[in-house]
Simulated assay, not measured.
Amino acid sequence: MQSAISSPSGLAHSSASFQKTLTGRIILAVAATGLVAVCAHISLPLPFTPVPLTLQTFAVILVGMALGPVAGFSAMVLYLAQGATGLPVFTPHGPGGIAQLMGPTAGFLFSYPLAAASAGWVVRAPGSRASRFTRAVFAGCVASLFIFALGAGWLASLLHLNASATWHLAIAPFLPGEAIKITAAAGIYSTFERWRRS
C-alpha cells in the first residue's frame, strides 16, 4: 500500500506545505533565479538589434505562474541583485553586472519582477470560467506586455529611437518566439496544476 506522501495527492500536499515555510520560499526563489539564469544562457545574438533572443522570458513567466505574484516578484528582484553583484546570471552576450543593468537590455531585465507578479496574479484571478491553460496563456500575454513596454521604452530612450525603429529592433523580431514561450509556459503550468490537484 502506498503511503500518503508517495501518492500524487500526498506529494502535492507536501509541496504546498513546503511552499508555505520560510525555508521553502527561500529555496524556491533561489531555484527560480537558477532557472532564469540557465534560460538566459540559451541565447542567440541578432545582428540587427542589441537585444539577443533568449529563453529568459519563458522562465520569468513560468516562475510567476508557479510561485504566485509575491514570491515571483521577490525571486526576480533576487535575480537582478545576483546579476548586479557580478554573478553570471545574465545572457553572456552583454557586459554583465551593473553595466548590463544600464545597457540596451536593462528595460527588459527590470521588467521581470513586474512580469512575474502580473503572470502570477492573472493566472490566480478569481471568477474566471476559462480553462487553466487559457488563463495561463492570458497571464503570459499580460506579462509580455510589461516586458515589451519597459524593454522597448528603455531601448528607445537610450538610443533615441523613433517608434518605427523601436518596433523593428525591440518588439517585432521577438513576437513569434514570445508566442511559443507563452504557450510552453502555460502548458507546463497547467499540466503541473492538473497533477497537483488530482
Rank of each mutant, 00 (worst) to 15 (best):
G107A: 11
W167V: 05
S74L: 13
L145N: 02
G64D: 03
I147D: 03
A12K: 09
A172W: 05
W167D: 06
H168N: 15
G34K: 08
A116G: 14
V30T: 15
V77F: 04
P8G: 11
N162Q: 12
A59Q: 12
A84Q: 09
P47G: 14
L155T: 02
E178H: 06
L161R: 03
A139I: 09
H41R: 10
A170C: 05
V36M: 08
H93R: 01
V38I: 15
S14H: 12
L11A: 13
A185P: 02
L28E: 02
L46Y: 10
H13T: 14
I188K: 02
I42D: 10
G127N: 12
S15G: 03
F192Y: 13
R196T: 03
M102D: 08
G72P: 02
V122H: 00
L67E: 03
M76S: 05
R132K: 12
R124H: 10
G10I: 02
H93C: 02
I147T: 13
V51L: 06
S9G: 07
H41G: 08
L175M: 13
P104I: 11
L169F: 05
G64K: 02
V122F: 00
W154M: 09
T54L: 01
A4E: 13
I182A: 00
F148S: 01
I61E: 00
F48C: 07
A31N: 08
A156G: 15
P47Q: 12
P176Q: 11
G103K: 04
V142Q: 03
A156R: 08
S118I: 15
R25P: 04
A37Q: 11
F192G: 05
A172L: 14
G103H: 06
A172K: 14
A185R: 00
G96E: 07
S111D: 11
P45M: 12
V60C: 06
G86D: 12
Q82L: 14
V142M: 09
P173W: 06
A32V: 00
S157H: 13
A99L: 13
S3V: 02
L114W: 13
L87R: 05
A31W: 07
I5Y: 05
A84D: 11
I61C: 01
